[in-house]
Simulated assay, not measured.
Amino acid sequence: MRTQRFALEFKGEVVTPLSERGYAVAAVCARFGVSSHSPYKWVKALSPGNLEKQAAELIEAKRERFRLNQIPCFFGDHHGH
């Protein structure tokens, strides 16, 4: 069985009633048609501290990618020419 992927906006719509309004997880999950396990992961993933950490990691990864792209390739043409 394939795991269903939800858009970030949808996750935010599910998390908001839980974190800001204090609604019960079971009620919110029934309303949105998601399992009762998912919102716990989403609340943690969408917490401000975690989002800041993910943004910093993304910036660092992009810097590293840029740095590596500046290094000449001595082991063959990596562009397929």
Rank of each mutant, 00 (worst) to 15 (best):
F32M: 11
K41A: 07
A24E: 08
F6D: 00
E20A: 14
A55R: 10
M1T: 12
F6Q: 01
V25T: 07
E64L: 07
H78F: 03
I59T: 07
L8V: 10
A26P: 05
Q70T: 11
F32G: 03
S47P: 06
V34E: 04
G22N: 08
V28M: 06
G49K: 07
V28S: 06
E13N: 13
F74G: 02
G12P: 12
P17F: 02
K62L: 05
R5F: 15
N69M: 08
A26R: 13
F6C: 02
G12L: 10
Y40V: 03
G33E: 12
F10D: 13
E52M: 08
P48M: 04
N50K: 04
G76W: 13
E64P: 02
V25C: 04
A61S: 14
V28I: 06
F10R: 09
H81Q: 08
V14Q: 01
E9N: 09
L58K: 08
P39V: 00
I71T: 08
G33C: 10
C73G: 02
A27E: 11
E60P: 09
Y40P: 00
L58N: 05
A55N: 05
A7R: 15
V15F: 01
E9G: 08
S19Q: 14
V25L: 05
Y40N: 06
A24L: 04
L46D: 00
V14L: 08
M1K: 11
V43Q: 06
K44S: 14
V14T: 05
R5M: 15
A61N: 14
S36F: 04
A61W: 12
L68C: 00
R5A: 15
P48L: 04
F32S: 05
L51Q: 06
A27Q: 05
P48D: 11
T16V: 08
F74L: 09
G49C: 04
L51E: 04
S36K: 12
G22H: 08
V34S: 04
H78M: 03
F10N: 10
E52V: 09
R63W: 00
K53S: 09
P39K: 00
A55Q: 10
A55K: 07
